[in-house]
Amino acid sequence: MNLTGGIVLFAVIWFMVFFVVLPIRFQSQEEAGEVVPGTPPSAPADARIGRKAWITTLIAVPLWAVIAAVILSGVITIRDLDWFGRIRD
């Protein structure tokens, strides 16, 4: 894995974790009882995107380190994932 591959792997992991973290402790404006005019009632009352981005980063970095270590160590190779015998020498 080269530098570009590592960056792409981190970005994919980060966004996957972000989409899992995003709905945690979600409260809509309707649930809060204060709907801002011009917004849908299902809009978040307090999104806290910055805090969720930091939480995502704290989770994504160790996940990326483990996955990158497995890839770089060669414990699992692309040939191990060839369940249908499509890769030929």
Rank of each mutant, 00 (worst) to 15 (best):
G85W: 02
A32Q: 06
R88F: 03
L63D: 09
A68I: 11
W83Y: 03
N2R: 01
I87M: 03
W83N: 01
Q27S: 05
R79F: 06
R79K: 05
P62V: 06
V20T: 11
W54Y: 13
A69M: 13
P40M: 13
Q27C: 04
G38P: 09
V21H: 12
S28F: 10
A60I: 10
A11V: 03
A45Q: 03
Q27Y: 09
V17N: 08
T56Y: 07
W54N: 10
V21G: 08
D89M: 08
V12C: 02
D82F: 03
V75D: 13
A65I: 15
I71S: 15
I59V: 15
A43P: 05
V8F: 00
L3F: 04
T56F: 06
F10C: 01
R48S: 02
F15M: 10
S28E: 09
V17G: 12
T39S: 10
I7W: 01
R51Y: 05
I49T: 02
L3K: 04
L81F: 05
D89T: 05
F18N: 13
V8T: 00
A43C: 06
D80T: 10
R88E: 03
Q27D: 05
E30F: 14
A32S: 08
D82P: 00
V35I: 15
A47G: 01
P37Y: 05
W54C: 13
E30Y: 14
F15R: 08
R79P: 02
A45D: 03
R86A: 01
A60C: 11
A60D: 06
L9N: 02
T77R: 09
I76Q: 15
A47H: 01
A69W: 12
W54V: 14
G38R: 06
L22E: 10
V61K: 03
I71W: 11
W54E: 14
L3A: 04
L63W: 11
N2A: 00
V70H: 12
T77Y: 10
P41A: 15
A43L: 06
G6P: 09
A32V: 07
V35A: 14
F15K: 06
V8H: 02
I71A: 12
I78N: 05
